[in-house]
């Protein structure tokens, strides 16, 4: 018996979404096969990594990742430029974290000003994220959309509780949209349907299936992503065909493995390497499940993820 390459053919295709403008714009998605299986299909765009930048100094980040941005993280413009110019960032993800009512409760107007300032300083694509407070995000992202008009940003996250305002704002200002639901294939589909019912094109959506850190539920994210991708390709389900985003930094840099000292837990080994490796391993796992865009924090973890992506081409 001779070996015959076991090719599968799929009817569906992941939508290709472009973010940003000019020669620094990036495209994600567009594949018509499972991750990196070019023996049976086309993978026109490799996964992209966005560097996370916050509108406030990251005082609650663990020391290992805080230290990596020492001297630049006090100001979002300096921080974003550092990522672009010195770290070779393909995209910046600006999290308007200070707008959360439990934080500084920064006004939508002030947040919009930060967005304008960052956009003026960078040419790579910008992802604009709220503080994950449904009500406040609706106001903040509406103002941010307006401030970023013309730059083809990726805005989010639109969730079931607040999608209407955010979708309308993204549509009016011509931005792409992150749709996030709670770790469930059907909820992800449902949200995409609700969003398209408002007249927003499904080809402009990026799905956030909700991420989890390695060791803290990554298997749920992994399988939800594999099922979403299977639905897009095998069942040709257009409402499941947006590319997928994983906002992993915020999950990874909250778990004990990225914070506990080696003296407290000698079985866990050196803290710095362990923490960085925790983020890159989380990234690689989700890249295997079909991630098209990842938001990450530590430069060294990002470097590893990029190296892996280069080897996957």
């Amino acid at each position: 018996m001779a070996f015959v390459v076991p090719k599968d053919t799929y009817n569906g295709k992941v939508f290709e979404v472009e973010i940003g403008t000019g020669d620094k714009a990036v495209k994600i998605g567009g594949e018509n096969t499972l991750p990196f299986l070019t023996f049976e299909g086309a993978v026109p765009n490799m996964p992209v990594i966005a560097h996370e930048v916050q509108d406030v100094a990251p005082e609650d980040w663990p020391e290992t990742v805080q230290a990596a941005y020492k001297g630049v993280s006090g100001d979002p413009v300096t921080w974003a430029k550092h990522c672009q110019d010195n770290l070779g960032a393909q995209a910046i993800a600006l999290r308007l974290y200070s707008t959360h009512p439990d934080r500084q409760d920064t006004s939508p107007e002030a947040a919009a000003k930060t967005v304008s300032d960052v956009l003026a300083a960078i040419s790579v694509p910008l992802i604009i994220l709220g503080s994950n407070h449904a009500e406040k995000d609706a106001q903040v992202l509406r103002a941010a959309c307006e401030a970023a008009k013309g730059r083809n940003c990726l805005i989010g996250k639109a969730q079931e509780a607040n999608y209407k305002t955010i979708v309308a704002a993204a549509m009016a200002a011509g931005h792409k949209l992150i749709a996030m639901s709670d770790l469930d294939v059907n909820l992800a589909k449902q949200l995409n349907i609700l969003i398209t019912q408002m007249g927003y094109e499904k080809e402009k959506i990026v799905t956030d299936p909700m991420s989890s850190a390695l060791g803290y539920g990554i298997e749920y994210t992994y399988s939800v992503m594999e099922r979403i991708r299977s639905a897009a390709l095998m069942q040709n389900d257009g409402t499941m065909a947006p590319p997928m985003l994983n906002d992993i930094g915020m999950y990874v840099w909250k778990v004990k493995e990225t914070m506990a000292s080696e003296s407290d837990l000698p079985d866990w080994g050196a803290l710095e390497e362990r923490a960085i490796g925790w983020e890159s391993t989380t990234a690689v796992g989700l890249i295997m499940a079909g991630s098209n865009l990842l938001i990450m924090r530590h430069p060294k973890a990002i470097e590893t993820a990029k190296k892996v992506i280069a080897e996957l081409a």
Partner: peptide
């Protein structure tokens, strides 16, 4: 993640194997 049954490493520093053991357990 992708179907290997035996994986050979040149080094098993604790920080490194902790993550791999966790990923294997999760998958």
């Amino acid at each position: 993640a992708k179907y290997a049954s035996i994986i050979v490493l040149s080094d098993i520093a604790k920080w490194k194997s902790l993550a791999l053991i966790a990923l294997r357990q999760n998958i």
